[in-house]
Simulated scan of single mutants.
Amino acid sequence: MAIRKIVRIDEEKCNGCGVCVPSCAEGAIRVIDGKAKLVSEVYCDGLGACLGECPLDAISIEEREAPDFDEIKAMKHAAGIESQRETVHACPSSRVLMFGGPKDQKNNQTQKNHTPSTLGNWPVQLGLVPPHAPFLKGSEILLAADCVPFAYPDFHSEFLEGKRLLIACPKLDDYDSHLNKLVQILQQAKPVGISVLRMEVPCCGGLTHMVYEASRMAGVTVPIDEITIGIRGEVLTRV
């Protein structure tokens, strides 16, 4: 152990966009549970190649006691993860965005015969949305089965406007992972309500069950509505 320069990541500022991940040649940084983290101090050379990559200035260099940088271990580690680097976290698909204001409406209007989008957040895949995303705080969440927008033609105008969208498939996705994510969202974001928009197929009922189970596990009481869409595109039930 010695006093040396090493990366410090401010998790309060970090939004989990992952832009810093590919900038670290040693593979010392990964996005874990929605936050960039230093996976091992021995992999960090303290030179700060990742500093200029963070859009939120969440990364800095500090001097403190830490294990010596081990170049051999770092290079072996980097070589081992190169083929499976988590590009999904470094990709714009996971960058947290909020939109839907006057500028976006103006842009929509420039396209003739184009129905304006009411989507107000990005990402929308439940697996990519960090629980601390600013757009979730105190919001009304629409948790939609990912088949719904294809089956229901007026999805934007009738269901999405004014809500924050999360999409998932209870049959094909990782149920336990989604359940844990919902628990974190309920505890951290404290939404004012959740509308579950599911298809009529039986497996889609797992989406509603997931929300109720997450509410129980989180110890958070939140109004929950369920709307069922038929495979021919009609609204079947509202509960």
Rank of each mutant, 00 (worst) to 15 (best):
R164G: 05
I231G: 00
C54H: 10
P131F: 11
C204Y: 03
V96N: 07
L172P: 00
G230Q: 04
E63H: 08
L128C: 01
Q187H: 01
G233Y: 04
Y152F: 15
V211E: 10
G101C: 02
S94H: 02
V39F: 06
A79P: 01
K13I: 11
L38K: 05
N107R: 13
I231T: 08
L38W: 02
I227M: 10
H89R: 10
K137W: 02
L128P: 02
V201T: 14
T208R: 04
M210S: 06
E63W: 08
K76C: 04
H156L: 05
M1G: 15
A58G: 14
K73S: 15
L47R: 14
R30H: 08
V31L: 03
P130R: 11
F159R: 13
K106I: 11
L38M: 09
V183R: 11
P116D: 01
G16L: 11
D10N: 15
H89Y: 13
T208Y: 13
A28F: 04
L136G: 07
V42S: 07
I229D: 09
G52D: 07
G162T: 12
S195Y: 02
P92N: 06
Y175M: 01
S157A: 15
V192H: 02
M217I: 08
N108G: 03
L47E: 14
M1Q: 14
C24E: 07
A25C: 00
K13Y: 08
A74M: 04
I81T: 12
